[in-house]
Lab assay of single mutants.
Amino acid sequence: MFKRLMMVALLVIAPLSAATAADQTNPYKLMDEAAQKTFDRLKNEQPQIRANPDYLRTIVDQELLPYVQVKYAGALVLGQYYKSATPAQREAYFAAFREYLKQAYGQALAMYHGQTYQIAPEQPLGDKTIVPIRVTIIDPNGRPPVRLDFQWRKNSQTGNWQAYDMIAEGVSMITTKQNEWGTLLRTKGIDGLTAQLKSISQQKITLEEKK
């Protein structure tokens, strides 16, 4: 169930391209415009997507990853294993993690069937560096609404905000991946996880038929 919630949630996290980005210092504006741009692209490019579902990787690479804190999220997933990894191991892992996100997020976007969304009203940021933004996803086919909290983090150097995690039903996506990959990290280390991520990233994206 959580895996499905995570995939549905990713439908609204794909941010804007650099040329049309919203105010990078306001995570609420980023979330709002990102959702609108993403849904528009999914709707307008269905012919290309249906002809070649792996085209979704391109959308992810162009529109999402430049505005997601990939390395920060990847380091959180590694936890204690990050500090013990060599620079070469980290570089290989982050490259594999990025390719994994292209496949995983692309597969999530393949679930698009006309969903709509509501974003919580903007709250004062103050001096906060981590801000959760509640998004409610509404399914046109009558499924119950899904309420999610996207975690946005302020870059201490640039002042810009980027998304790095999502919490559904009190469970963090980062925590879920830590639990899912924990045994592999304990037995085969970061190299074993890197190899698995490379394998997963090679899987073809498949479209979910409308139910």
Rank of each mutant, 00 (worst) to 15 (best):
Q48L: 12
Q118M: 04
P27W: 14
Y72H: 05
A120H: 06
F2A: 06
D149W: 09
Y112T: 05
M7Y: 00
G159W: 12
M111H: 08
P121C: 13
H113D: 11
K29N: 05
Q118R: 06
V8N: 00
I137T: 15
D149L: 12
T86A: 04
M173L: 05
Q202C: 10
V12P: 03
Q80W: 12
W161N: 00
P87E: 09
S84T: 04
A19C: 00
K210H: 14
S199Q: 14
F2I: 00
D32Y: 05
Q62T: 14
V60R: 06
Q162T: 13
L101D: 15
S172C: 09
Q157T: 08
S199M: 00
K188H: 11
G114I: 14
K177W: 13
L76G: 11
Y117W: 14
N141R: 10
G159S: 11
T129W: 05
T176V: 12
G79T: 08
I119G: 11
Q151W: 11
N52R: 04
K83A: 01
D32S: 09
Q157K: 06
V135A: 13
T86G: 12
M166L: 07
P145A: 03
P47F: 01
K128S: 04
A22T: 08
R4C: 03
A75F: 06
M6T: 02
A19S: 10
D23G: 07
I174E: 09
Q36D: 03
T116S: 03
R153S: 13
Q157W: 12
Q107V: 07
Q36A: 04
I59A: 07
F39E: 02
I137A: 15
Q80C: 11
N52H: 03
M111D: 13
V70F: 12
Q107R: 03
D40N: 11
A95G: 04
A110V: 05
Q115C: 11
G142L: 10
R153G: 10
G142S: 12
E180D: 04
V8I: 00
P124D: 06
W152H: 01
P132L: 08
R98A: 03
V12W: 12
Q151H: 04
L184D: 15
R90V: 12
I59W: 00
A34H: 08
I49M: 04
N179R: 11
P124Q: 03
I13P: 04
N44E: 01
Y117R: 12
Q178H: 06
T176G: 08
P124Y: 06
Q103A: 02
L185E: 03
Q80E: 02
I174G: 07
A9T: 10
Y55P: 07
Q203L: 04
M166K: 10
P27E: 02
T158I: 03
D139S: 09
Q46A: 12
Q115K: 09
T183Y: 13
W161C: 11
V171E: 04
P66G: 08
Q48H: 00
Q46L: 04
T136A: 10
W181L: 07
P145I: 02
D23N: 14
A95L: 08
E122Y: 11
P140L: 07
T175L: 13
K128Q: 05
K128M: 15
Y55G: 08
W152R: 05
V68I: 12
L30F: 05
P124L: 09
M6L: 09
K102L: 01
P132H: 05
Y100M: 14
Q162L: 10
P87D: 01
P132A: 13
A34K: 05
I119F: 07
D54T: 00
T86R: 13
Y28P: 06
A168L: 02
Q157C: 05
Q123I: 15
G126L: 14
A120Y: 15
I130Q: 15
V68W: 08
Y67Q: 02
G142H: 14
H113Q: 06
P121W: 06
A195H: 12
A75L: 06
T176L: 12
R147G: 03
I167F: 14
M1D: 08
E33F: 02
L125R: 09
M6Y: 00
R186F: 11
T187E: 01
I138F: 10
E209H: 04
N155P: 10
L56N: 02
K102M: 00
V8G: 05
G79L: 07
Q202P: 12
T38D: 00
A110Q: 00
P15E: 08
L101Y: 01
P145M: 09
Q62A: 12
I200N: 05
V131P: 09
T58S: 05
K102G: 06
A85R: 01
P87V: 10
A88M: 04
I59K: 14
I167N: 10
R143S: 11
T175A: 15
Q151E: 15
G182M: 14
R147E: 06
L30T: 03
T158W: 11
I174R: 10
T175I: 02
A18W: 00
V12D: 12
S199W: 13
P53H: 00
K198T: 08
R4P: 05
L5D: 14
L109K: 15
T129K: 09
G189P: 08
M7P: 09
G79S: 07
K211L: 14
F2D: 04
R4I: 11
L148T: 14
K154C: 07
A9Y: 04
K37D: 06
A9P: 05
L207E: 14
L184G: 06
S17N: 13
S199C: 12
Y117H: 04
Q178T: 15
D40Y: 15
K83I: 03
E91N: 01
A75R: 06
L11A: 01
P121F: 08
Q178F: 14
G74M: 01
E45I: 07
Q123A: 09
K83N: 02
L207Q: 13
N160M: 02
R134V: 01
Y93H: 08
V60P: 13
W161T: 04
K154E: 03
N141V: 06
Q115P: 09
D54W: 02
Q69G: 10
Y28N: 15
V8K: 07
P132R: 10
N179L: 14
A21H: 03
G74F: 11
P53Q: 10
D61Y: 01
L16N: 02
L30Q: 05
G126T: 03
A88P: 02
K29T: 09
D61Q: 02
A18T: 11
D61G: 08
I190S: 05
A120D: 07
Q203S: 15
A108D: 11
Y28H: 10
I49K: 12
K188M: 02
L197Q: 02
K102H: 06
G192Y: 13
Q203K: 13
G182C: 04
V131N: 11
P144C: 08
D127R: 10
Q203I: 00
D32H: 00
K83S: 03
G126Y: 02
A104N: 01
I167S: 02
V68A: 04
Y67C: 15
A73R: 13
Q202D: 04
V146F: 14
W152M: 09
V12C: 00
S156P: 04
P47D: 04
F39M: 06
L11I: 05
A104F: 02
S84L: 03
N141D: 13
